[in-house]
Structures are given as structure tokens and as C-alpha cells.
Design a binder for these strands. Sequence first.
DNA 1: GTACAGATTGAG
DNA 2: TCAATCTGTACT
Length: 177
Amino acid sequence: MRKKLLRNFYVRPTLKVAKELLGKYIVRKIGKRKREGKIIETEAYIGPQDKASHAYGGKITPRNKAEYLIGGHIYIYLVYGMYWQLNISTFKEGKPECVLIRALDLGRLADGPGKVCRYLKLNKSFYAEDLTKSKRIWLEDRGEEISPSSILATPRIGIDYAGPYWSRRKWRFVLKS
DNA sequence: GTACAGATTGAG
DNA sequence: TCAATCTGTACT
């Protein structure tokens, strides 16, 4: 069973999408070759109230504007001057909510958000790409059942600057192996 | 215009 | 433990 994820999957509350992305496959077509992997770690960012979000306070910049797109678009940006971070916009148009893809089930090849993008060869050219329409990247449901008991919820990584309230929200989701 | 820190990673 | 190095923001 291979079913491409469509708009109705992404246009839902972000925490729900972040959890359900676990166990889904991301497929990246590079020429005639494909690179793909199962998503095993995600994080939810829910602006404008979320102090850890780039859209905190309703802020809009050239970098973060893709966060405001309707669910199913790619929000990709560079951190620390060298690592791309793959996010998927969620919920409705105008709502700056997204899910960060932190790891794929590929061992050390993709065990961090920067490495996911390096493996999938993603960069600024994918900015605002529509995952429901793109011919070079999309997500698939391959019928793998994920039980709630196999999902671990933990605080998000690397956002201590957002203060204890937001950095302690358990909005990071990991698929137990 | 300058200064500074960040949703990270890999080397020492 | 620390440096790499682009982008946005808060200053002068």
C-alpha cells in the first residue's frame, strides 16, 4: 500500500500532524534515482504564541514566510550558516505552524535535521515547494501502523532561549525502535 | 553601518 | 569543548 499524502493530511492541527508523520516515508527523486526514508523524529512549532517559533508574535520575514502557507508546503532555512532544516507547513493558510523533520530511519545517515537535508539533497531551491504537487519530493503512507504507545513525547531540542515554559513543552515526537 | 546569536554538526 | 559561517534583529 503506497498512498501519497494529500492536502487533507496536512491541513489539521499541528501536534496531530507531527505525531502522524512518524512512520510515513519521505521520497526524494534525484534524476532517475530515488532517496527515501521513514520519518522517526519530528518537532512541532506553533507560532505566533510559541516563543521558540520563527513566527513568534506574528513576525513575517523573507525567511519564514513559507510557514504561513497552507499545510503541505516546505519551509526550509539555513541555521548556523551551514545546515538546512526541513519543515513542513501545517494547518490553514495564514497560520504559521509547521513540523520540523529531525530524523529518518537510516542510521547515522540522517539522525539529525541537518543530516536529513544533506542526505535528501535539499536546499533553498525547495523553498515553498508543494508536497502534494511536486515531482521531486513527496510523502507516502505505506500502511505501517503506529500505535500511540510507540510514540515518545519529549521537550524540543536546542531552544532553551525560548525560556522554560516553551522549551519544556513536549512537542518533540520520537518513534521508538 | 556593527555586533551578536541561532530549531547543528563533527572534530579534538 | 569549540569552531564553521549565513540570516535576521537590535542596536550605534
